[in-house]
Structure formats: C-alpha cells, structure tokens
C-alpha cells in the first residue's frame, strides 16, 4: 500500500511536468510524421512507405529515450527534496527507486501503446495489423528496460544531469549503428557486420520480421534479453544506490 502511494505520487509528478509529458506523447508522433514526410521520395509505392519505416524506428528511439524521463523522475531538483524525506522515514531503500521505475514504466507503456494504436488505426502506419499485440509487447519491454536503465544510471552517477547526459551517448551510438536513421548496409559489409553488435538493430529486425514476414523467431530472444537486462539494472540499483548521498 505504502509503495503504491509513493509510486502514485511519482507518477503524478511526471504528469505535472509538461516537457516529460510532451516528449512521451506528442513527440514520437511528430518525429514519425516529420521523418516520414521528409524521406517520402526515397520510398516507392511498395508495401512499405517512409511512414511505415520511421513509424517503427522512431517509436524504438522514443521508447529508448524514456531513459531521460526515468532520470528526471528520480533525481530532478524538486523530486530530490521529497526523496530526502523518504530516506529519513523507515522505508527500505528499494522502495524509493522501484517506485520511480514503476511510475516511469506505467507512463511509458500507456502512452506508447496508445501511440502504436493511434498510428495503426488512425494514421494507417503498418504496425503488423493483427500482429500488433506482439509489437506492443516488444515496445513494452523496451520501455521497461529504458526505465530500469535510466534509474540505474541515476543510482550509479548520483546526479540527474550526469546520468541523462551520459546515458544519451550509448542510446545515440547504438541507434545510429542500429539503423534507426539510415540503413547501415549502405556503409559497406564491415559496418553492417559491426551493427550486429547493436541491440537496437535486433529490436528493429525483430519488429520488421514480425510485421512483414510473420516471423516470430526473434521475439522471444529479444524480449527475454530486454527483460533480463532490466533485472540486471535493478540489481545494480540495489547495489549502488546510496540514500545517504542525497542528504548532503
């Protein structure tokens, strides 16, 4: 009960922050629309339009960027003060960071599921038609991982600004090498081989295989890896989170 109350407060805190709300609701749609519009001429009238491609890749990117929301929900100046009170209270420290993970995750799941459904049914972006639930699951896991990773970075760095600026780098790096912005195969065989190391590439490939080939071979490995990575992040949180650092 107490934990849920903390999580509810954290959730409301995110809702009260217009920038966070905007970046998790309207921003992905704007990105899809813009990238799709700008690259329209590169795609033909085949069964995948520019909107279909960037619909998948920009959702992946936005879902990963929920890391920023997580770091913000955890250690923004205003939230920090409330955290200090909780540290004084007889509450296990796990409840403090788990509530941030839960609130970010709930927000992310809700908004990205709605975005995917709006995309498919209102804007006719191809998210797999009847296979949409699987894409929902994939994005859901991605959001969970992002929430855990962002919170972990906060625990490790102990500072919101550091955590968010540093965690942006691997996201950008893996996205660029995972084919979010352009196809890596255009850079030759070596780079294409390197891109296999990027988790983002596998997420994209998994999504495209589900949507265009009805091929679910990658779904379980990818979702389980994301889930495993999330648990690993939570463990690191427990090990590195030092509430006493807050008080100074």
């Amino acid at each position: 009960m107490r934990f849920l109350r903390i999580a509810k407060f954290d959730f409301e805190n995110i809702l009260r922050n217009p920038t966070l709300l905007f970046s998790n609701t309207v921003m992905p749609l704007i990105l899809i629309g813009l990238m799709g519009f700008v690259t329209q001429s590169f795609f033909g009238s085949g069964n995948m339009s520019s909107y279909d491609y960037y619909g998948v890749s920009m959702i992946t990117l936005s879902a990963l960027l929920i890391i920023m929301t997580a770091t913000n929900a955890f250690m923004e100046e205003r939230v920090k003060r409330a955290n200090i009170r909780m540290i004084y209270a007889p509450i296990p420290k796990a409840e403090i960071y788990l509530s941030k993970i839960l609130s970010t995750y709930i927000l992310g799941t809700l908004s990205f599921s709605i975005i995917l459904m709006i995309g498919q049914y209102l804007f006719h972006i191809n998210y797999g038609g009847g296979n949409l639930p699987y894409i929902l699951l994939l994005v859901n896991m991605l959001v969970l991982f992002g929430s855990c990773f962002g919170t972990m970075m906060c625990c490790v760095m102990g500072d919101e600004e550091k955590a968010s600026s540093i965690s942006q780098l691997p996201v950008l790096f893996f996205s660029a090498f995972g084919g979010i912005f352009f196809s890596v195969y255009g850079l030759g065989k070596t780079v294409a081989a390197i891109s296999n190391l990027s988790p983002v590439k596998w997420i994209l490939e998994c999504a495209f295989r589900i949507i265009y080939d009805n091929d679910f071979a990658l779904l379980l490995p990818v979702t389980f890896s994301l889930f495993g990575a999330s648990i690993a992040c939570v463990i690191v949180c427990q090990l590195t989170f030092k509430p006493e650092d807050f008080t100074c």
């Binding site: 995948m48 352009f182 195969y185 255009g186 495209f208 295989r209 265009y212 080939d213 091929d215």
Partner: peptide, 10 residues
C-alpha cells in the same frame, strides 16, 4: 529472402 531484409536495407 524475407521481406524484412528489404525493410532493413540489406
């Protein structure tokens, strides 16, 4: 090949 290899740009 799978249609997704077109999507991925392979």
């Amino acid at each position: 090949p799978a249609t997704s290899s077109l999507a991925m740009g392979k």
